[in-house]
């Protein structure tokens, strides 16, 4: 974290989806912050609220979802208090977002050139020649083979990896200070994914940008991130420096998540991998207390009646758990 405060501070963010059967609490009063020039990872199972959190930052939560509480402070501005017209000028220019499915994220009926031009012109008044020059350069930087030819192609004529490069080029075109990457490598094969991560890292170094990296892959987190937040059922259950969280997880869920990951360096046989029992609770009528209680091996009576407190177990290392549980859990 930099001396003059974090780049992004999310506090008590609450996102609900209105359904016929009541409100679905997709994100329930979560807190985390991202320092400048930092890579922050958000990890968790499918449906834990990672993507919704990311879309909240951009103000793009899909209907019937709605941010019902909390603050999202970017720099010195609270994005929740800004009118849509101002938020729009921040989107793409100061906060960019890379999506999970690159091909579906491109307009199917326009050429790459048109789409890059849209991105470049969204916030800057550029001439035709300049747009073209920059488009070619961006694609080349991203390792696109024959960028000139790629400009004339439609998304369906490109491979998944090439679509990803086009989307990344679009999203980085305005050199955002914060880049949100939602499962950027999930749809890609291993090598292309590694290249993309390398590119993101380079982008971060060159432009002193911050990255919010969303993934369910602990390996990617370990490789890329400075700090990590672990999400479970709409709660951020643990936040802290990657080293500390990985070495010494304080929340039972984080421990379970790490135990369920295959690690080559530990030379562990497949049978040692732990499954996390149970499933993510129904968020339509979530239990009032800890949402991991039903799956937790250390559960105590105190876990059920109320949301557990947010405890600072070490400087910058927070855990959403009952103190007694943490203590028992830390001393096996």
């Amino acid at each position: 974290m930099s001396a003059n405060g974090p780049l992004l501070q999310v506090s008590d963010l609450q996102v609900h989806f209105r359904t016929r059967d009541g409100s679905l609490e997709a994100v329930d009063r979560i807190n985390f912050e991202i320092g400048s020039n930092e890579v922050f990872g958000l990890v968790g199972e499918s449906g834990s609220g990672k993507s919704v959190t990311a879309l909240s930052i951009l103000g793009l939560v899909p209907s019937p979802g709605r941010i019902v509480g909390g603050d999202i402070v970017f720099g010195d501005r609270n994005l929740r208090e800004l009118p849509e017209r101002v938020v729009r000028t921040i989107r793409g220019r100061e906060i960019g977002m890379i999506f999970q499915n690159p091909r579906a994220s491109l307009d199917p009926v326009r050429t790459v050139a048109v789409q890059l031009s849209r991105a470049l012109r969204a916030h800057h008044d550029l001439g035709r020649g300049e747009v073209r020059r920059r488009s070619v350069r961006m694609l080349r930087d991203l390792g696109m083979p024959d960028p000139e030819a790629a400009l004339t192609k439609y998304p369906h004529q490109l491979s998944g990896g090439m679509c990803q490069r086009v989307m990344v080029a679009m999203m980085l075109s305005s050199r955002p200070r914060l880049l949100i990457a939602d499962e950027p490598t999930t749809a890609l094969d291993e090598t292309v994914g590694a290249q993309l991560l390398e590119h993101l890292r380079r982008f971060k170094e060159e432009h002193a940008a911050s990255i919010l990296l969303i993934t369910h892959d602990m390996g990617v987190i370990a490789e890329m991130c400075d700090r990590v937040g672990v999400m479970h059922a709409g709660h951020v259950v643990e936040v802290g420096p990657v080293g500390a969280v990985f070495r010494d997880p304080r929340h039972p869920y984080t421990r379970a998540l790490l135990d369920s990951t295959l690690r080559i360096d530990r030379d562990s046989p497949l049978s040692d991998i732990e499954r996390i029992p149970g499933t993510v609770p129904n968020l339509l009528h979530p239990p009032p207390g800890c949402r991991f209680a039903d799956r937790c091996a250390y559960v105590l009576p105190a876990c059920r009646p109320a949301k557990p407190p947010r405890l600072e177990v070490a400087p910058g290392h927070h855990v959403l758990c009952q103190e007694t549980v943490i203590r028992e859990f830390a001393a096996p």
Binding site: L58, R93, A104, S105, R118
Partner: peptide
């Protein structure tokens, strides 16, 4: 509701 419209909005294009 498509991904490409969401991506376009994330780029900051006008409504």
């Amino acid at each position: 509701d498509s991904d490409f419209v969401r991506a376009a909005r994330a780029l900051g294009l006008s409504r």
